[in-house]
């Protein structure tokens, strides 16, 4: 099978996006340490962000900026990549950051309350 550079790249990018999501899922579902679960959630987010960026990419596209240089490229038959996924991923990264911060502060609170950060040893409420 003959693959050119672009095909290898796209398989690599999509593959690593799905790989990241699966690694994150593994961490969330299997790991018992609260911090590792939070890390797993961040990895899932990173995978989805990568997938989103990959979907918005157009082969050979340039940065989507309205500037004299950008207009010249488009006038000469060039293309720009889709700017919407990039804007959305930027927003999603900020949201992910906020959720991670809240999650870690809860982990600290749980650790102080129970003197442990292992999820199988914290069971005042029914899990």
């Amino acid at each position: 099978m003959d693959l050119d550079y672009n095909q290898i790249m796209s398989i690599g990018v999509y593959g690593s996006a799905i790989g990241l999501i699966l690694i994150g899922l593994y961490a969330v579902l299997i790991k018992k340490h609260l911090t590792k679960i939070v890390i797993g959630l961040s990895i899932i987010d990173a995978g989805i962000h990568l997938l989103f960026i990959a979907i918005g990419y157009i082969k050979g596209g340039t940065a989507p900026i309205f500037s004299p240089a950008g207009e010249k490229i488009v006038a000469n038959g060039g293309v720009m990549v889709d700017p919407v996924p990039q804007a959305l991923v930027l927003t999603a990264i900020v949201i992910g950051f906020a959720v991670t911060a809240v999650a870690l502060s809860l982990v600290i609170r749980l650790y102080r309350h129970h003197q442990t950060a292992r999820i199988d040893q914290i069971k005042s409420l029914k899990w």
């Binding site: 609260l34 959720v99 609170r109 749980l110 005042s124 409420l125």
Partner: peptide, 14 residues
């Protein structure tokens, strides 16, 4: 046990 309930909610929610 608010932190525990909140962490559970956060885990499912995120």
């Amino acid at each position: 046990d608010g932190a525990e309930a909140a962490f559970k909610y956060l885990l499912i929610g995120s």
